[in-house]
């Protein structure tokens, strides 16, 4: 196994394209190293993207943000300006493992690992984030909810890699939040995760909303029906109950060592409702 740390995106793409599928991108490495150790991954080439300057930056961009794929979770958490705008995204990032893991792990890696339970992803879906992809054929963008195809599978083609994640400009009177359920308070994989992003008008009526769910299907889901339960309401108890029911109804979970179907379906609704309550609180506070 060879290790390369290119200095430019172009070099990285050239290395990946030349390796004919035998290469892995190394960002934080917190998933890749475990796969190497267990033998689940056995690449010929590791392409470390941390020496590429644009991959390491969080850039304010037309009111939104461009988060380089190699920005670590701790860097993002400590970015106070970003955290003020997208607290729900940061809610998710804060839950990606221990402080130690977050010192290496990246949001880009969390996305590319393509786990249905990735804590970083539902809030990105709710926020309407885009994945910025670069490859031999140039650059393209894709909505986060379309990027992951299933467990361990993404829409990345040969030689392509994620360069950044693009967060839109946050709307006025809006708030986002992410909550997950785990048996322990920390150091767990989400049994269920739910993110809500909503926008209020001057009268406190919800004008738009997006709801993302994690760990309840083969990939994180955008759930328009759950969002519809909020739109046009003042996000009162009744609306929250409808949101919970819609979130539960959207689940297509499995039974596994981390939770049962029945549990996931029920708790998805609970988490969605609680996340919405936080999001609306944030929206009201942000004015």
């Amino acid at each position: 196994m060879r290790y390369e740390a290119p200095k430019t995106l172009e070099q990285a793409i050239a290395l990946l394209s030349g390796a004919n599928g035998q290469a892995r991108v190394l960002a934080g490495g917190t998933d890749v190293l475990i796969q190497l150790r267990s033998g689940r991954a056995d690449p010929q080439l590791l392409v470390d993207i941390k020496a590429i300057p644009e991959m390491r930056a969080v850039v304010a961009d037309s009111g939104g943000y461009r988060i380089g794929a190699a920005v670590t979770c701790m860097e993002l958490i400590e970015n106070e300006v970003f955290a003020r705008d997208w607290p729900g995204v940061v809610d998710g990032v804060k839950l990606i493992g221990s402080v130690q893991v977050k010192g290496r792990a990246t949001l880009g890696g969390n996305l590319c690992n393509a786990s249905p339970a990735a804590d970083g992803v539902p809030a990105l879906i709710a926020a309407g984030a885009l994945v910025c992809i670069a490859g031999p054929l140039g650059r393209r963008e894709a909505p986060v909810e379309d990027f992951v195809l299933g467990p361990g599978r993404t829409s990345l083609g040969n030689g392509e890699l994620v360069a950044a994640i693009q967060l839109p400009r946050r709307a006025p009177h809006s708030g986002d939040a992410y909550l997950r359920f785990t048996p322990r308070t920390e150091m767990d994989i989400a049994v269920v995760g739910a993110a809500v992003y909503l926008t209020l008008d001057g009268k406190g009526v919800c004008r738009s909303a997006r709801v993302g769910l994690g760990a309840v299907a083969a990939r994180a889901l955008l759930v328009p029906a759950a969002a519809a339960a909020l739109i046009g309401t003042t996000v009162d108890e009744a609306a929250l109950e409808r949101l919970a029911a819609a979130a539960s109804a959207a689940c297509r979970p499995i039974d596994d060592k981390r939770g049962t179907k029945q549990f996931r379906v029920k708790v998805a609704g609970v988490m969605a409702r609680r996340a919405a309550a936080i999001a609306i609180e944030r929206a009201r506070r942000q004015g």
């Binding site: 290790y3 190394l26 934080g28 490495g29 917190t30 190293l33 475990i34 590791l46 670590t72 701790m74 493992g97 221990s98 402080v99 130690q100 893991v101 010192g103 290496r104 150091m187």
Partner: peptide, 21 residues
């Protein structure tokens, strides 16, 4: 990376030495 026994500080960041090449 699940137990923290290998915690070290790299360029000021707390990390697990088992999760870094």
């Amino acid at each position: 990376g699940d137990c923290g026994a290998c915690s070290v500080i790299v360029d000021g960041r707390l990390v697990c030495a088992c999760l870094m090449l």
